[in-house]
Amino acid sequence: MTESRILQVEALRVAFETRQGTVHAVNGVDFDVRPGDVLGIVGESGCGKSATLRAIAGLTQPPGEVTGGSVRFADRELVGLSRRSLRQVLGKDIGFISQSPFGALNPILSIEAQFRNVIRAHRRATKRECREIALRALTDVGIAGPDRVLGGYAHQLSGGMAQRVVIAMAMVHDPRLLLADEPTTALDVTVQRQILDLVTGLIAEAGRSMVLVTHDLSVVAQYCTRVLVMYAGRPVEEGTVRQVFKSPRHPYTQALLAAVPRVGEEIRGLSGGLPDLIDYPVGCPYAERCPRATALCAEEMPAMASCVPGRAAACHHPLEEVASYAAS
């Protein structure tokens, strides 16, 4: 079974040392990614989804620190790897895309120079070869007139163009796994779709995999194959997008789905806020906001329990399966 999993995350923990105390941002996250999977990680701000993604890529910024667990990429342990060994994997086998394309690009170096640095990080290439590779990569992400883009600088690009350039750079070495942290949040809606179509297209084309962190459930519904719902640094529900969206088992997932605004309906938000991540609750972190909570929930942390393979929820009182789902 192991060969079929490209990424295995087990009991991953990330903590941030602050003056007020240790913030437990990620508290034991497990999931697998198989070739061809597009896994969406969703949750509200501060649920640890971005911290999880960064921990996978070894990009956790101090004062943050991976305090436990394991990240295995193609059967190679990444946690605890030196920066030097990690950098052999990053950019080559694992690609990383962050939120703001303008933040990601160097403002002072030309796009061509940045491409050259990225290409030469993993292979020997002459200036001319680098240029050819970069031109091809830019064409692949749908940039017309890649010559002009290469000669220019980040600030001369539009948001959508800049994100295409970032994607082209992240994927120039054909990584098997792409990690994307809200890659379209900084872009306007029409461009968002184009970028997501592009990325998921590139992923599907070559049987690659992707982990997509987002707070946008419609993005998950449209582009992901699997979904992991996180709350307060813990996974609360996991399954195929179809399963989870159609019949959520965790009350938090249900509330999240109900909070998606629909035309003609009143907007329903989630009441209450995240629990204290410094003085982490003993029981279920969602207990305080949960309509189904009982005394048990406040005392004992529910573990992820699967009913069907590949489908799990962490709840003492999960919602019933909808009959129509059981049939499908």
């Binding site: 990009l59 962050s98 993993h122």
Partner: peptide, 14 residues
């Protein structure tokens, strides 16, 4: 900054 994060994410040497 995200710029350095992206540079590291692309595997640039330190």
């Amino acid at each position: 900054t995200p710029q350095i994060e992206f540079a590291r994410g692309c595997g640039l040497p330190e």
